[in-house]
């Protein structure tokens, strides 16, 4: 969430009309299962309506269970099968450079996603083609669907692996807004090779009962009590929270 807020808040500037602009900067959520966070970000920016949020995963909704570009042009590509969004982002970066569009492309990958072989095919190709207009960000929360990465399939030494594949690798605290901004600046100012920002994060950061807890990986079912506790944990005052809830419900 902090990464998405920083990307869309500072790095990428989009308005609704930009869907027709081939030269726009693009963001791909390669870890497509995290799309509720993406949809919330779009709603906060006015790219979609807040009222559409409750239709998430419902029949007929453009807010599909994984991002679908045909329904939502800002998804840039349909994702949901890990590894593919990253490759598609590489295609966008290559296509943009080939046509002199000047756009930058960002892709957010999960840590478990890095176990897909396609990710490393893609990583090899991005550095081979010298795609400095590409920035990958790894949401490194150390948890995947069933358990900790280390127990499922170890990823370390992660930065070493990316560097060995020809990438500029930057490790940061993924909840430090200044660190995210600085890393994005560094990526933008890197010539000749792509940059990966390995963002160390805590899953469910800021919500006490969700933090570092694998069961919330694939669940969005919240009771009213859960919501109240989450809002308290996030230090949202009641009036602000009520405004958001009203906005969503109405």
């Amino acid at each position: 969430m902090d990464i998405l807020a920083t990307l869309y808040g500072w790095e990428i500037s989009l308005t609704k009309s930009d869907t027709d602009n081939d030269a726009r900067d693009r963001f791909v959520l390669s870890k497509g299962h995290a799309c509720p966070a993406l949809y919330a970000t779009w709603a906060a920016l006015g790219l979609i309506s807040l009222q559409s949020i409750p239709t998430l995963r419902k029949l007929g909704s453009p807010l599909q269970g994984h991002p679908h570009v045909v329904d939502m042009p800002f998804a840039e590509t349909s994702t949901g099968s890990l590894g593919q969004g990253f490759s598609a982002a590489i295609g966008m970066a290559l296509g943009a450079r080939h046509q002199g569009l000047g756009s930058r492309v960002y892709a957010l990958l999960g840590d478990g996603e890095l176990q897909e072989g396609q990710v490393w095919e893609a990583a090899m190709s991005a550095s081979h083609h010298g795609l400095s207009n590409l920035c990958a960000i790894v949401d490194y929360n150390k948890l995947q669907s069933d358990d900790r990465n280390a127990n499922i399939m170890a990823l370390e030494p992660l930065a070493v692996r990316w560097r060995a594949f020809g990438w500029n690798a930057i490790e940061i605290d993924g909840h430090d807004f200044d660190a995210i901004k600085n890393a994005l600046d560094a990526a933008r100012n890197t010539d000749g090779l792509p940059t990966v920002i390995i963002a160390h994060t805590i899953k469910g950061k800021g919500v006490s009962y969700m933090e570092d807890s694998a069961p919330w990986h694939g669940s969005v079912k919240l009771s009213n009590d859960d919501i109240s506790r989450a809002l308290q944990d996030l230090s949202l005052d009641n009036a602000t929270a009520q405004d958001w809830i009203d906005g969503i419900v109405n």
Partner: peptide
């Protein structure tokens, strides 16, 4: 596999 998905991304830019 990478090549196939990259092609999708390149098409997204109008190629």
């Amino acid at each position: 596999q990478n090549m196939m998905s990259v092609a999708g991304g390149m098409a997204a830019t109008g190629l």
